[in-house]
Design a binder for these strands. Sequence first.
DNA 1: GTAGTCATGTAAGACGTTACATGATTCT
DNA 2: AGAATCATGTAACGTCTTACATGACTAC
Lengths: 185, 185
Amino acid sequence: MSIKHAVLGLLSWQPLSGYDLKKRISSSTAFYWSGNNNQIYKTLIQLQEEGLVTFEEHFQEKGPAKKVYSVTPQGQEELRKWALSTPQVPEVRNTFLIQLAWANELSGEELNSLIDQYDEEVSMHLLMHEEQTRRGSDAPHRTAREAYMWQMISENTTTFLKNELNWARKLRHELKDRPELNSGE
Amino acid sequence: MSIKHAVLGLLSWQPLSGYDLKKRISSSTAFYWSGNNNQIYKTLIQLQEEGLVTFEEHFQEKGPAKKVYSVTPQGQEELRKWALSTPQVPEVRNTFLIQLAWANELSGEELNSLIDQYDEEVSMHLLMHEEQTRRGSDAPHRTAREAYMWQMISENTTTFLKNELNWARKLRHELKDRPELNSGE
DNA sequence: GTAGTCATGTAAGACGTTACATGATTCT
DNA sequence: AGAATCATGTAACGTCTTACATGACTAC
Protein backbone atom coordinates (compact mmCIF):
# COMPACT_ATOMS: atom_id res chain seq x y z
CA MET A 1 0.00 0.00 0.00
CA SER A 2 1.32 3.47 -0.77
CA ILE A 3 -1.15 5.77 1.00
CA LYS A 4 0.39 4.64 4.23
CA HIS A 5 3.83 5.63 2.96
CA ALA A 6 2.66 8.87 1.41
CA VAL A 7 1.23 9.88 4.78
CA LEU A 8 4.33 8.67 6.60
CA GLY A 9 6.46 10.69 4.20
CA LEU A 10 4.49 13.87 4.63
CA LEU A 11 4.69 13.52 8.40
CA SER A 12 8.42 12.86 8.21
CA TRP A 13 8.77 16.24 6.59
CA GLN A 14 6.72 17.96 9.24
CA PRO A 15 4.17 17.01 11.89
CA LEU A 16 0.62 17.61 10.73
CA SER A 17 -2.95 17.01 11.76
CA GLY A 18 -5.31 14.84 9.74
CA TYR A 19 -7.04 17.95 8.52
CA ASP A 20 -3.81 19.52 7.28
CA LEU A 21 -2.75 16.25 5.63
CA LYS A 22 -6.00 16.21 3.74
CA LYS A 23 -5.47 19.73 2.46
CA ARG A 24 -1.95 19.01 1.28
CA ILE A 25 -2.80 15.75 -0.39
CA SER A 26 -5.92 16.83 -2.20
CA SER A 27 -4.36 20.06 -3.45
CA SER A 28 -1.35 18.32 -4.96
CA THR A 29 -1.57 17.78 -8.71
CA ALA A 30 1.55 15.59 -8.81
CA PHE A 31 0.32 12.65 -6.76
CA TYR A 32 -3.26 12.92 -7.37
CA TRP A 33 -5.57 11.24 -5.02
CA SER A 34 -8.74 12.60 -3.52
CA GLY A 35 -7.32 12.46 -0.01
CA ASN A 36 -10.63 11.67 1.60
CA ASN A 37 -11.24 11.82 5.32
CA ASN A 38 -12.14 8.21 5.68
CA GLN A 39 -8.79 6.92 4.53
CA ILE A 40 -6.68 9.60 6.15
CA TYR A 41 -8.09 9.23 9.63
CA LYS A 42 -8.12 5.45 9.36
CA THR A 43 -4.55 5.39 8.09
CA LEU A 44 -3.43 7.63 10.93
CA ILE A 45 -5.04 5.41 13.54
CA GLN A 46 -3.53 2.36 11.90
CA LEU A 47 -0.06 3.89 11.72
CA GLN A 48 -0.33 4.85 15.35
CA GLU A 49 -1.34 1.31 16.34
CA GLU A 50 1.69 0.02 14.47
CA GLY A 51 3.87 2.43 16.40
CA LEU A 52 5.04 4.28 13.30
CA VAL A 53 3.56 7.63 14.36
CA THR A 54 2.55 9.35 17.58
CA PHE A 55 0.30 12.31 18.17
CA GLU A 56 0.07 15.21 20.53
CA GLU A 57 -3.18 16.95 21.21
CA HIS A 58 -2.87 20.68 20.59
CA PHE A 59 -5.56 22.73 22.24
CA GLN A 60 -6.20 26.10 20.68
CA GLU A 61 -7.95 29.21 21.99
CA LYS A 62 -10.11 29.26 18.92
CA GLY A 63 -11.51 26.13 17.33
CA PRO A 64 -11.36 22.47 18.27
CA ALA A 65 -8.30 20.52 19.42
CA LYS A 66 -5.87 19.17 16.82
CA LYS A 67 -4.17 15.83 16.87
CA VAL A 68 -0.77 16.61 15.49
CA TYR A 69 0.96 13.47 14.27
CA SER A 70 4.69 12.92 13.93
CA VAL A 71 6.84 10.01 12.84
CA THR A 72 8.56 7.73 15.37
CA PRO A 73 12.05 6.25 14.80
CA GLN A 74 10.33 2.99 13.78
CA GLY A 75 8.31 5.02 11.31
CA GLN A 76 11.50 6.52 9.86
CA GLU A 77 12.96 3.05 9.53
CA GLU A 78 9.83 1.76 7.80
CA LEU A 79 9.90 4.71 5.41
CA ARG A 80 13.53 4.10 4.55
CA LYS A 81 12.89 0.40 3.99
CA TRP A 82 9.95 1.14 1.73
CA ALA A 83 11.91 3.78 -0.21
CA LEU A 84 14.44 1.05 -1.06
CA SER A 85 11.89 -1.48 -2.31
CA THR A 86 12.00 -2.22 -6.04
CA PRO A 87 10.06 0.40 -8.01
CA GLN A 88 6.99 -0.51 -10.00
CA VAL A 89 5.99 0.64 -13.49
CA PRO A 90 3.33 3.34 -13.10
CA GLU A 91 -0.28 2.45 -13.78
CA VAL A 92 -2.12 4.63 -16.22
CA ARG A 93 -5.87 4.60 -16.33
CA ASN A 94 -6.61 6.32 -19.61
CA THR A 95 -10.31 6.00 -20.34
CA PHE A 96 -9.91 8.19 -23.40
CA LEU A 97 -7.99 5.38 -25.11
CA ILE A 98 -10.87 3.00 -24.53
CA GLN A 99 -13.21 5.64 -25.88
CA LEU A 100 -11.13 5.93 -29.05
CA ALA A 101 -10.86 2.19 -29.39
CA TRP A 102 -14.59 1.91 -29.88
CA ALA A 103 -15.14 5.17 -31.72
CA ASN A 104 -15.68 3.41 -35.01
CA GLU A 105 -19.32 4.49 -35.20
CA LEU A 106 -18.45 8.18 -34.87
CA SER A 107 -18.38 10.63 -37.75
CA GLY A 108 -15.16 12.39 -38.69
CA GLU A 109 -16.37 15.60 -37.11
CA GLU A 110 -17.43 13.92 -33.88
CA LEU A 111 -14.03 12.30 -33.63
CA ASN A 112 -12.19 15.56 -34.24
CA SER A 113 -14.26 17.30 -31.64
CA LEU A 114 -13.52 14.53 -29.17
CA ILE A 115 -9.79 14.90 -29.71
CA ASP A 116 -10.04 18.67 -29.33
CA GLN A 117 -11.87 18.22 -26.08
CA TYR A 118 -9.15 15.93 -24.85
CA ASP A 119 -6.53 18.48 -25.85
CA GLU A 120 -8.39 21.14 -23.89
CA GLU A 121 -8.77 19.03 -20.78
CA VAL A 122 -5.11 18.08 -20.76
CA SER A 123 -4.01 21.67 -21.48
CA MET A 124 -6.08 22.92 -18.58
CA HIS A 125 -4.60 20.32 -16.31
CA LEU A 126 -1.11 21.24 -17.44
CA LEU A 127 -1.72 24.91 -16.72
CA MET A 128 -2.98 24.13 -13.25
CA HIS A 129 0.01 21.95 -12.59
CA GLU A 130 2.47 24.58 -13.79
CA GLU A 131 0.75 27.22 -11.72
CA GLN A 132 1.00 25.05 -8.65
CA THR A 133 4.64 24.21 -9.34
CA ARG A 134 5.46 27.87 -9.71
CA ARG A 135 4.02 28.57 -6.27
CA GLY A 136 5.97 25.56 -5.03
CA SER A 137 4.16 25.68 -1.71
CA ASP A 138 4.11 21.97 -0.98
CA ALA A 139 7.70 20.98 -1.69
CA PRO A 140 10.14 20.33 1.14
CA HIS A 141 13.74 21.36 0.62
CA ARG A 142 15.69 20.20 3.62
CA THR A 143 18.63 19.47 1.35
CA ALA A 144 19.70 20.46 -2.18
CA ARG A 145 18.96 16.94 -3.27
CA GLU A 146 15.47 16.94 -1.87
CA ALA A 147 14.65 20.23 -3.57
CA TYR A 148 15.95 18.84 -6.86
CA MET A 149 13.94 15.65 -6.41
CA TRP A 150 10.73 17.55 -5.91
CA GLN A 151 11.48 19.58 -8.99
CA MET A 152 11.95 16.38 -10.99
CA ILE A 153 8.79 14.85 -9.55
CA SER A 154 6.85 17.84 -10.75
CA GLU A 155 8.61 17.65 -14.10
CA ASN A 156 7.51 14.06 -14.46
CA THR A 157 3.89 15.15 -14.44
CA THR A 158 4.65 18.04 -16.78
CA THR A 159 6.36 15.86 -19.39
CA PHE A 160 3.61 13.28 -19.07
CA LEU A 161 0.94 15.85 -19.87
CA LYS A 162 3.00 17.33 -22.72
CA ASN A 163 3.47 13.87 -24.14
CA GLU A 164 -0.30 13.43 -24.13
CA LEU A 165 -0.72 16.74 -25.93
CA ASN A 166 1.83 15.87 -28.60
CA TRP A 167 0.18 12.56 -29.13
CA ALA A 168 -3.30 14.06 -29.40
CA ARG A 169 -2.09 16.71 -31.85
CA LYS A 170 -0.38 14.18 -34.04
CA LEU A 171 -3.58 12.17 -34.08
CA ARG A 172 -5.58 15.25 -34.91
CA HIS A 173 -3.34 16.28 -37.78
CA GLU A 174 -3.03 12.88 -39.33
CA LEU A 175 -6.79 12.48 -39.35
CA LYS A 176 -6.95 15.82 -41.16
CA ASP A 177 -4.25 15.02 -43.71
CA ARG A 178 -5.38 11.52 -44.54
CA PRO A 179 -8.91 11.63 -45.89
CA GLU A 180 -9.08 7.84 -46.10
CA LEU A 181 -9.32 7.85 -42.29
CA ASN A 182 -12.29 10.17 -42.23
CA SER A 183 -15.04 7.69 -41.81
CA GLY A 184 -15.85 4.71 -39.68
CA GLU A 185 -17.75 3.10 -42.53
CA MET B 1 -17.56 3.20 -15.07
CA SER B 2 -15.38 2.16 -17.99
CA ILE B 3 -15.08 -1.62 -17.54
CA LYS B 4 -18.62 -1.86 -18.72
CA HIS B 5 -17.76 0.03 -21.86
CA ALA B 6 -14.50 -1.80 -22.44
CA VAL B 7 -16.41 -5.07 -22.35
CA LEU B 8 -19.16 -3.67 -24.53
CA GLY B 9 -16.54 -2.50 -27.00
CA LEU B 10 -14.76 -5.82 -27.18
CA LEU B 11 -18.06 -7.58 -27.75
CA SER B 12 -19.03 -5.07 -30.44
CA TRP B 13 -15.94 -6.16 -32.31
CA GLN B 14 -16.75 -9.82 -31.98
CA PRO B 15 -18.91 -12.05 -29.78
CA LEU B 16 -16.93 -13.64 -26.99
CA SER B 17 -17.38 -15.73 -23.87
CA GLY B 18 -16.44 -14.47 -20.42
CA TYR B 19 -13.40 -16.67 -20.50
CA ASP B 20 -12.18 -15.27 -23.81
CA LEU B 21 -12.83 -11.72 -22.64
CA LYS B 22 -10.67 -12.36 -19.64
CA LYS B 23 -7.81 -13.62 -21.78
CA ARG B 24 -7.95 -10.64 -24.11
CA ILE B 25 -8.20 -8.08 -21.37
CA SER B 26 -5.50 -9.42 -19.11
CA SER B 27 -3.05 -9.97 -21.95
CA SER B 28 -3.38 -6.43 -23.25
CA THR B 29 -0.59 -4.10 -22.18
CA ALA B 30 -2.33 -0.99 -23.50
CA PHE B 31 -5.36 -0.92 -21.19
CA TYR B 32 -3.96 -2.65 -18.31
CA TRP B 33 -6.29 -4.11 -15.84
CA SER B 34 -6.10 -7.52 -14.27
CA GLY B 35 -9.36 -8.61 -15.92
CA ASN B 36 -10.40 -10.77 -13.02
CA ASN B 37 -13.27 -13.23 -13.18
CA ASN B 38 -15.34 -11.60 -10.54
CA GLN B 39 -15.78 -8.36 -12.41
CA ILE B 40 -16.07 -9.85 -15.87
CA TYR B 41 -18.83 -12.29 -15.05
CA LYS B 42 -20.65 -9.74 -12.94
CA THR B 43 -20.38 -7.11 -15.65
CA LEU B 44 -21.70 -9.54 -18.26
CA ILE B 45 -24.72 -10.42 -16.13
CA GLN B 46 -25.35 -6.75 -15.45
CA LEU B 47 -25.04 -5.80 -19.13
CA GLN B 48 -27.42 -8.57 -20.00
CA GLU B 49 -29.97 -7.41 -17.42
CA GLU B 50 -29.75 -3.92 -18.91
CA GLY B 51 -30.46 -5.39 -22.32
CA LEU B 52 -27.14 -4.22 -23.78
CA VAL B 53 -25.90 -7.72 -24.57
CA THR B 54 -27.39 -11.17 -25.20
CA PHE B 55 -25.78 -14.59 -25.04
CA GLU B 56 -26.09 -17.90 -26.78
CA GLU B 57 -25.05 -21.10 -25.15
CA HIS B 58 -22.56 -22.98 -27.32
CA PHE B 59 -22.23 -26.64 -26.48
CA GLN B 60 -18.97 -28.25 -27.52
CA GLU B 61 -17.96 -31.89 -27.98
CA LYS B 62 -15.03 -31.34 -25.71
CA GLY B 63 -15.17 -29.21 -22.59
CA PRO B 64 -17.96 -27.28 -20.90
CA ALA B 65 -20.58 -25.09 -22.55
CA LYS B 66 -19.71 -21.48 -23.43
CA LYS B 67 -21.92 -18.48 -23.03
CA VAL B 68 -21.05 -16.40 -26.06
CA TYR B 69 -22.11 -12.79 -25.58
CA SER B 70 -22.88 -10.28 -28.30
CA VAL B 71 -24.03 -6.67 -28.31
CA THR B 72 -27.66 -5.71 -28.89
CA PRO B 73 -28.71 -2.59 -30.86
CA GLN B 74 -29.32 -0.86 -27.51
CA GLY B 75 -25.79 -1.86 -26.57
CA GLN B 76 -24.42 -0.30 -29.76
CA GLU B 77 -26.35 2.88 -29.01
CA GLU B 78 -25.01 3.00 -25.46
CA LEU B 79 -21.46 2.48 -26.73
CA ARG B 80 -21.83 5.30 -29.24
CA LYS B 81 -23.26 7.60 -26.59
CA TRP B 82 -20.43 6.83 -24.21
CA ALA B 83 -17.80 7.28 -26.94
CA LEU B 84 -19.09 10.84 -27.36
CA SER B 85 -18.92 11.78 -23.69
CA THR B 86 -16.29 14.37 -22.74
CA PRO B 87 -12.88 12.76 -22.27
CA GLN B 88 -11.10 12.78 -18.92
CA VAL B 89 -7.46 13.44 -18.17
CA PRO B 90 -5.77 10.08 -17.54
CA GLU B 91 -4.98 9.08 -13.98
CA VAL B 92 -1.43 8.07 -13.27
CA ARG B 93 -0.60 6.11 -10.17
CA ASN B 94 3.15 6.42 -9.99
CA THR B 95 4.32 5.02 -6.67
CA PHE B 96 7.92 5.53 -7.73
CA LEU B 97 7.43 9.29 -7.46
CA ILE B 98 6.26 8.92 -3.88
CA GLN B 99 9.24 6.72 -3.22
CA LEU B 100 11.58 9.42 -4.56
CA ALA B 101 9.78 12.13 -2.65
CA TRP B 102 10.80 10.56 0.64
CA ALA B 103 14.17 9.20 -0.43
CA ASN B 104 16.05 11.84 1.52
CA GLU B 105 17.51 9.27 3.91
CA LEU B 106 19.04 7.21 1.10
CA SER B 107 22.72 7.28 0.17
CA GLY B 108 23.77 8.41 -3.30
CA GLU B 109 24.43 4.84 -4.33
CA GLU B 110 21.12 3.57 -3.05
CA LEU B 111 19.35 6.31 -4.97
CA ASN B 112 21.21 5.57 -8.18
CA SER B 113 20.45 1.90 -7.88
CA LEU B 114 16.77 2.72 -7.34
CA ILE B 115 16.67 4.79 -10.51
CA ASP B 116 18.44 2.05 -12.45
CA GLN B 117 15.92 -0.45 -11.23
CA TYR B 118 13.12 1.80 -12.39
CA ASP B 119 14.79 2.15 -15.77
CA GLU B 120 15.00 -1.62 -16.05
CA GLU B 121 11.39 -2.21 -15.07
CA VAL B 122 10.14 0.36 -17.54
CA SER B 123 12.43 -0.92 -20.30
CA MET B 124 11.15 -4.44 -19.79
CA HIS B 125 7.60 -3.24 -19.92
CA LEU B 126 8.32 -1.32 -23.11
CA LEU B 127 9.84 -4.38 -24.74
CA MET B 128 6.83 -6.48 -23.84
CA HIS B 129 4.52 -3.84 -25.18
CA GLU B 130 6.42 -3.53 -28.45
CA GLU B 131 6.49 -7.28 -28.84
CA GLN B 132 2.75 -7.45 -28.32
CA THR B 133 2.12 -4.59 -30.72
CA ARG B 134 4.24 -6.30 -33.37
CA ARG B 135 2.10 -9.40 -33.10
CA GLY B 136 -0.94 -7.12 -33.28
CA SER B 137 -3.20 -10.02 -32.37
CA ASP B 138 -5.78 -8.09 -30.41
CA ALA B 139 -6.45 -5.13 -32.68
CA PRO B 140 -9.60 -4.97 -34.78
CA HIS B 141 -9.34 -3.41 -38.22
CA ARG B 142 -12.82 -3.28 -39.67
CA THR B 143 -11.94 0.04 -41.30
CA ALA B 144 -8.75 1.90 -42.15
CA ARG B 145 -9.62 4.37 -39.43
CA GLU B 146 -10.05 1.71 -36.79
CA ALA B 147 -6.72 0.14 -37.67
CA TYR B 148 -5.05 3.54 -37.44
CA MET B 149 -6.74 4.25 -34.10
CA TRP B 150 -5.46 1.05 -32.60
CA GLN B 151 -2.01 1.86 -33.83
CA MET B 152 -2.20 5.25 -32.13
CA ILE B 153 -3.57 3.74 -28.93
CA SER B 154 -0.59 1.44 -28.80
CA GLU B 155 1.71 4.36 -29.60
CA ASN B 156 0.27 6.25 -26.64
CA THR B 157 1.58 3.60 -24.30
CA THR B 158 4.89 3.47 -26.15
CA THR B 159 5.52 7.20 -25.91
CA PHE B 160 4.42 7.18 -22.28
CA LEU B 161 7.00 4.56 -21.40
CA LYS B 162 9.70 6.29 -23.45
CA ASN B 163 8.91 9.52 -21.67
CA GLU B 164 9.42 7.77 -18.35
CA LEU B 165 12.76 6.43 -19.54
CA ASN B 166 13.96 9.84 -20.72
CA TRP B 167 12.94 11.36 -17.46
CA ALA B 168 14.67 8.66 -15.40
CA ARG B 169 17.86 8.97 -17.45
CA LYS B 170 17.95 12.72 -17.10
CA LEU B 171 17.54 12.28 -13.36
CA ARG B 172 20.28 9.68 -13.31
CA HIS B 173 22.73 11.83 -15.24
CA GLU B 174 22.12 15.01 -13.35
CA LEU B 175 22.67 13.24 -10.07
CA LYS B 176 25.96 12.01 -11.49
CA ASP B 177 27.08 15.38 -12.84
CA ARG B 178 26.13 17.46 -9.86
CA PRO B 179 28.00 16.24 -6.81
CA GLU B 180 26.18 18.67 -4.55
CA LEU B 181 23.12 16.43 -4.98
CA ASN B 182 24.92 13.34 -3.84
CA SER B 183 23.77 13.19 -0.30
CA GLY B 184 20.61 13.48 1.67
CA GLU B 185 22.49 15.03 4.59
C1' DG C 1 -1.22 -39.22 -11.50
C1' DT C 2 -0.11 -34.50 -11.54
C1' DA C 3 -0.35 -30.33 -13.78
C1' DG C 4 -2.46 -27.37 -17.13
C1' DT C 5 -6.20 -25.30 -19.80
C1' DC C 6 -11.20 -24.60 -20.64
C1' DA C 7 -15.18 -22.58 -18.58
C1' DT C 8 -18.21 -20.97 -15.12
C1' DG C 9 -18.81 -18.77 -10.99
C1' DT C 10 -18.52 -17.24 -5.49
C1' DA C 11 -16.30 -15.32 -1.16
C1' DA C 12 -13.60 -12.34 1.35
C1' DG C 13 -11.40 -8.43 1.83
C1' DA C 14 -8.65 -4.33 0.52
C1' DC C 15 -8.93 0.03 -1.48
C1' DG C 16 -11.45 4.44 -2.67
C1' DT C 17 -15.10 7.82 -3.05
C1' DT C 18 -19.07 10.58 -1.75
C1' DA C 19 -21.78 12.06 1.54
C1' DC C 20 -23.26 12.71 6.14
C1' DA C 21 -22.74 13.97 11.37
C1' DT C 22 -21.08 17.05 14.97
C1' DG C 23 -19.78 21.23 17.11
C1' DA C 24 -17.33 25.51 17.50
C1' DT C 25 -15.86 29.75 15.46
C1' DT C 26 -15.48 33.41 11.90
C1' DC C 27 -16.94 36.03 7.96
C1' DT C 28 -20.68 38.64 5.25
C1' DA D 1 -29.25 34.59 9.76
C1' DG D 2 -26.52 31.93 6.64
C1' DA D 3 -22.32 30.28 4.78
C1' DA D 4 -17.51 29.06 5.24
C1' DT D 5 -13.65 27.12 7.62
C1' DC D 6 -11.58 24.33 11.28
C1' DA D 7 -11.37 19.71 12.99
C1' DT D 8 -12.73 15.13 13.95
C1' DG D 9 -14.90 11.14 12.57
C1' DT D 10 -18.68 7.46 10.53
C1' DA D 11 -21.78 5.23 6.96
C1' DA D 12 -22.74 3.47 2.75
C1' DC D 13 -21.44 2.11 -1.22
C1' DG D 14 -18.66 1.09 -5.33
C1' DT D 15 -14.41 -0.74 -7.38
C1' DC D 16 -10.80 -4.10 -7.72
C1' DT D 17 -7.93 -7.96 -6.45
C1' DT D 18 -6.72 -12.56 -4.65
C1' DA D 19 -8.12 -16.75 -3.85
C1' DC D 20 -11.15 -20.53 -3.83
C1' DA D 21 -14.79 -24.04 -5.84
C1' DT D 22 -16.33 -27.12 -9.44
C1' DG D 23 -16.02 -30.26 -13.20
C1' DA D 24 -14.31 -32.02 -17.54
C1' DC D 25 -10.86 -32.84 -20.63
C1' DT D 26 -5.76 -32.87 -22.24
C1' DA D 27 -0.70 -33.45 -22.05
C1' DC D 28 3.40 -35.25 -19.94
